[in-house]
Every structure is written in C-alpha cells, then in structure tokens.
Design a protein around this nucleic acid. Structure first.
Lengths: 217, 217
DNA sequence: ACCTGAACACCGTTCAAGT
DNA sequence: ACCTGAACACCGTTCAAGT
C-alpha cells in the first residue's frame, strides 16, 4: 500500500485509517479489505512495514563483518528516521514479509564467513539491530516529530523545559543540575551518540570474536 | 492514573480510552479531563508513563560503574516487560515527569565518579538505555503479547511459520535456511541475547574509559 | 464561572440487502 | 457467491445549555 505509507510519512500513523485511504483512492471503505487482501487493519500495517523494508536491503555488502554491520546499522537508522511511524509499531509487528526476509538474509550474510556458534551469531545481529531501533526511538522521541499535534514543536519544547526546570529546582538532583542533562539534544548530539554507542557495541562484539576466525584485516 | 495503568497492563493500550476509564471510575467521560488535569488524551499517557517510571528507581546503586549500569539495564528491562504497552509509546512520550527525573538522576549517578567528558558520559547512558529499549521491543514483539487480538498466540505463530516457510522455500535464502533463523525465539533465547549484547556493549564502553579513572576494582 | 450531557466528526467492522 | 452500503458499537473532543 504505497498510498498508506506516504500518508503515514506525511501525517503520521494516526492519519492512516481505512476510511481515509478509501477516500484517497476514491473507493468505498469496505473495498479496501478486498483490495489489499486483509482481514483486519493490523494487516495493513504489516503490508506497510514490508513495503518500507525493501529500503533496508543494501545494494552491496562490505566483505569485512564489522564494516558490514556498520553499514546495515546506518541504513536501518536512516530508513526508520525516514518512516518515523514505524517506531509506533515496533512492539507489534515482526518483520515477516518478503522484503523483511531479504533484509534478514542480508544481515545473516554479514556474519556469513565468521566461524562462530550460530546462536552467538544471531545474538550479535540482534544486539546491533535492537541497539539501532532503540537509538532511533530515542532520536524520534527527542526530535518530537510526532508530538506537535495540538501545539507546535517549539511550544511543546518550551513547555517541557519550563516544567522540568521547576521540577529540578524543587528537588535535589545534583547530577542533572550539573549536566543540564534535561536539555533536549540537538540532531548533531543524537548522531554522535548513535555513532559512539555503535562503535562501543561493535568493539565489544569484536573482542568476543577470536580475531583469527574473522575475514577482515 | 493507577486504574489506567492496570487497565493497560491487563488489556493493552488499545483498551485505554477516556470513556472506558470513566466507566470504571463510575464517572462521566468529560469528568476525566478535570479529574486528571489533562487537556488531551496524550497527556494521560504521560501520566501513566510517569507512574510506572517510579518502578525504575533502584533502592541501591552499586558503587562500581559497570555493575551499576548492569543493574539499571536489568531493571529497565523488567519494568518494560511488566508494562509492555510502554513500548507502543516509545517514540511519542519522553520521560519528563517527576519519577522520570528521579530515574534520570540515578542513571547519571551511576557514572558520577567516572572522570570523563560530560557528553561522553551522556552518550554512554543513552547507549545502554536505548539498547535495553530496543532489546525489549524485540522481546515483546517476539513473544507476541500484543498480537493475539483476533487469534490466539499459537494460531498467530503457526500462521507466521507456514507463511515464512513458503517464502523461504520459494526464494534463495541460504543463510536463513541454514540457521532456521526465522524460528520464533524462546524466552530463554531472548534473555540470553539480551545479556550477551549488554556485556558486549559494556565491554566496549569499558575500553573507551581509561581504566585508571574508574572507581571499580 | 463552572460543570455536564448531548452532539459532532470521526473510527473499524458487521451484516443484511442487493446483484 | 460476491459486493456494498447502511448500521452498529465504539472513539476523542466541542459546545451549548443548565446551574
């Protein structure tokens, strides 16, 4: 459902309704069920996720496992940021469609030549993937892309700051006060946090692998 | 809103409606807005999140930074699993309430004695936290706690397996076929994946810290 | 000025009436 | 047997009527 995806990209997941899509397609609400071959609205979300999953597959995968995982992580993050509504479905819809499988095959291929236990291999891929998902959820949350339904982003940010400043001044929070940790992060901060953490995770994975068994330099 | 939290725990976030809560409280729908001091339903979710955020705060924080981060990560995971609906809000509602601030203060305290750049410190905390959120989203997704609205979990699992088996057999996915990677993971697998990845991440963070500056042994 | 019930503008989905 | 429009059982929120 290309139209559903672009609708969600533009107006958020809340705007995606059977009736709205029907109107956009100049069809009747009930026609959507037969047209998209779905029984419930949730299956529409599955289709949307599979559609954007196609964007996850890289044209070429670096030979070196670490570079490959790095490239996969960056791509996943950019796709999730491009389709921020995906985060709202992250606990509900497993990657099960055809494109999801292609993506899974590629992630497995990234560690294909590494000679380790299969469970460990899967654990490494899951660790990187879940890290990226978590970081992106944080980024989307912080950028407040999905907040400004009633008020603008600026208004929301202002309300948050003054509310929190009052809370912090009322209580005893030395670490927060020192760090000014409740300042909303900038996009640059979020990029930097993401890259730093990814490197730490990959470094940890690297030490868990016997260097002799890897294909990389 | 204790009643809203327990309702979400029992029946999922979808069941949480202004009208349903009003009925449970033997009140009129519109009374909820003044009773909970909210202007929009989204603010009810903020209140729910702050309520369960109280469970994040540990009674005692280990002195050693690595043990402290480990304990914080385990607690966050268990709270998120106990209130699985939280994942559905993960991209929408920043932790801004009073209890969220107490939690933030404690996480900052975990690295309080470590002598490093403040931004780096924040990056480490964000890395651990987002990793836990991502892993927990994966776990909730896999356990399918939120799926069984129409069909039971078993039916859903079966449908998923046969659908995917067909897809995999039709295409050319050597790595998936070899690993049987699309088998749904067991709870034990998910626990193991979580712990392994957390150790890798903490190991990576550890190497980024000059060992001499840490307080641990 | 405050409260509140009816009303409005939406939902997803059922189901019976029509072909 | 299939399609489809009306209807049902919900939503969040507005707003005017009542106090």
């Amino acid at each position: 459902m290309t139209s559903a995806v672009s609708l969600a990209d533009r107006e958020g997941l809340r705007a995606v309704s059977i009736r709205r899509i029907a109107t956009d397609l100049a069809a009747r609400p009930m026609s959507i069920y037969s047209f998209a071959a779905i029984e419930h609205k949730d299956e529409l979300f599955d289709l949307m996720i599979d559609e954007v999953s196609a964007e996850l597959v890289l044209p070429e995968l670096p030979q070196n496992w670490r570079e490959a995982l790095h490239a996969i992580a960056l791509r996943l993050r950019s796709v999730l940021l491009r389709h921020a509504w995906w985060i709202d479905l992250i606990g509900r819809n497993v990657l099960i469609g055809p494109n999801g499988i292609r993506y899974r095959e590629q992630t497995l291929a990234a560690l294909g030549d590494v000679q380790i236990d299969d469970t460990l291999k899967l654990a490494m891929l899951v660790a990187v993937e879940t890290y990226v998902v978590g970081q992106t959820a944080f980024a989307i949350d912080e950028q407040g892309a999905t907040h400004g339904e009633g008020r603008t982003h600026e208004q929301w940010q202002l309300a948050r700051e003054s509310y929190q400043r009052a809370l912090i001044e009322a209580g005893n929070f030395p670490h927060i006060a020192r760090l000014e940790a409740f300042q909303p992060t900038s996009p640059e901060d979020r990029d930097r946090f993401f890259t730093l953490g990814l490197e730490w995770l990959l470094a940890g994975i690297s030490t868990a692998l016997d260097p002799a068994t890897t294909t990389g330099p």
